[in-house]
Computed example of a mutant assay.
Amino acid sequence: MTDISRRGALGLLGGAAALPMLGSPAFANTKVTVGALNFTSHAASFVAFERGYFAEAGLDVEFKFFQAAQPMAVAIASGDADYAVTSITGGLISLAEKGATKVIGGALTEEKGIDGQKILVSDAAYQAGVTTPKALDGKKFGITQAGSSFHYMGAKIAQAEGIALEFTPLQKVGAVIGALKSGQIDAWSIVPHIAKPLAGSGAVHIIGNVADYIPNYQVTTVFTSANNAANERAKTEAFLKAFSKGAADFNAALVDKTTGEADAEDMIKLIHKYVYADKPYDKAKPGIVNGAMRINEGAALNTTSVQDQLDWFKSEGLVKDSVTMDMLVDSSYVQTM
């Protein structure tokens, strides 16, 4: 994990959609730890940090970076992180059932007309004739852990195609990438800022789109501890307000492209501090641009998609049948979509 902190950041003015129920925080310089992955899909938090929206809201933010979604959920439950953005996993749902975590908003979403997550296969599988998702029958599909979003996506693809997949847990995204490139696994699904550069290298091939199998998929959510949701309302509302401003800036610059080329370039440079930071800017830029999927305005949540995910986890025996949406989601914060 890597920690990054900006204390006393200057608040900057920015046009953004604000959550209607949120007011000004009654505190200043409150320390908050935000869990994230080094993905373009986490850009709303990065923008809110770099453009001073968190500081403007009275939040002194420190990032903790993780390699997978489920450890992030554990960190929220244990108090090692205050807020985070990640996919719905079996771990997150189980922690919510135990009264430890709450989903408080939506983030990344699959949207018709916006290039989204891709289905990838290794070059070895592709050369052997696996050129469509239907041809994945009996093949090894990489996941981080059982009950991860990768597991959910692979299962929905298999169900739609009437095929069987062998799910291979590899714990970390980096390990999945290595296994796919070396042919140790046959397939995977991932956000486009990772998928497209991998495909461009020739080591893997894109054979389909996740949106064709899971339309309007709520890929990631904003969540926090049940304690923060119940007892730290002003802080939680301030976080959501700043996060939403960051999302609005990101969408305008790179998804809707309404603010001009100069702003888009500034946005890519900002994100580059967190995504592909080990690469020169000109090498990192295409991957960042490719990852520009919609982040929900106002942190709105597609509850229909969340319910579908919850139902799937139950059907697979990965969470208890008794878990309800009310256990998982604190609807007092949520705008639905």
Score class of each variant (00 low, 15 high):
Lys235Ile: 12
Gly291Thr: 14
Lys235Trp: 10
Phe150Ser: 13
Leu136Gln: 14
Gly99Val: 12
Ser315Met: 03
Asn216Val: 06
Thr30Cys: 00
Gly162Arg: 09
Ala68Asn: 14
Ser148Cys: 04
Phe250Gln: 03
Leu318Gly: 05
Val210Arg: 03
Gln145Lys: 00
Ala44Ser: 15
Ile194Leu: 10
Ala100Ser: 03
Ala124Gln: 15
Ser322Met: 08
Met267Gly: 14
Gln159Ile: 09
Tyr217Ala: 13
Asp3Tyr: 09
Ala55Lys: 05
Ala164Trp: 06
Pro71Ile: 05
Ala300Tyr: 00
Gly174Leu: 02
Thr30Ser: 10
Tyr276Pro: 09
Lys134His: 10
Lys285Val: 12
Phe27Thr: 15
Gln67His: 07
Thr89His: 00
Glu62Ala: 14
Asp137Ser: 09
Tyr276Gln: 04
Arg6Ala: 01
Pro169Glu: 06
Gly11Trp: 00
Asp80Phe: 04
Val74Gln: 08
Glu166Thr: 15
Gly113Lys: 10
Ala187Lys: 03
Lys314His: 03
Ser322Cys: 02
Ser45Cys: 08
Ser332Phe: 01
Ser24Phe: 06
Ala84Lys: 03
Glu166His: 04
Val103Leu: 01
Lys235Thr: 09
Val329Leu: 02
Asn29Phe: 00
Val61Leu: 12
Thr304Asn: 12
Asp321Lys: 10
Glu265Leu: 00
Ala248Trp: 05
Tyr274Phe: 07
Glu166Gly: 11
Gly246Val: 02
Ala199His: 02
Ile88Pro: 07
Thr30Ile: 01
Asn251Trp: 08
Lys156Leu: 08
Ser45Asp: 15
Val121Cys: 01
Gly91Ile: 05
Leu136Glu: 09
Thr259Met: 03
Leu165Cys: 00
Ile288His: 04
Ala17Gln: 11
Ala160Lys: 02
Ala248Val: 12
Pro197Gln: 05
Gly174Phe: 04
Glu56Cys: 01
Asn302Asp: 12
Asp212Asn: 15
Lys257Leu: 02
Asn302Gln: 06
Ile194Pro: 06
Ala9Lys: 09
Ala230Arg: 13
Val74Asp: 14
Ala44Tyr: 06
Tyr217Phe: 15
Leu270Gln: 08
Leu59Glu: 09
Gly142Ile: 05
Pro197Cys: 07
Tyr281Asp: 15
Ile114Gly: 10
Ala187Leu: 04
Val74Ser: 10
Leu165Arg: 01
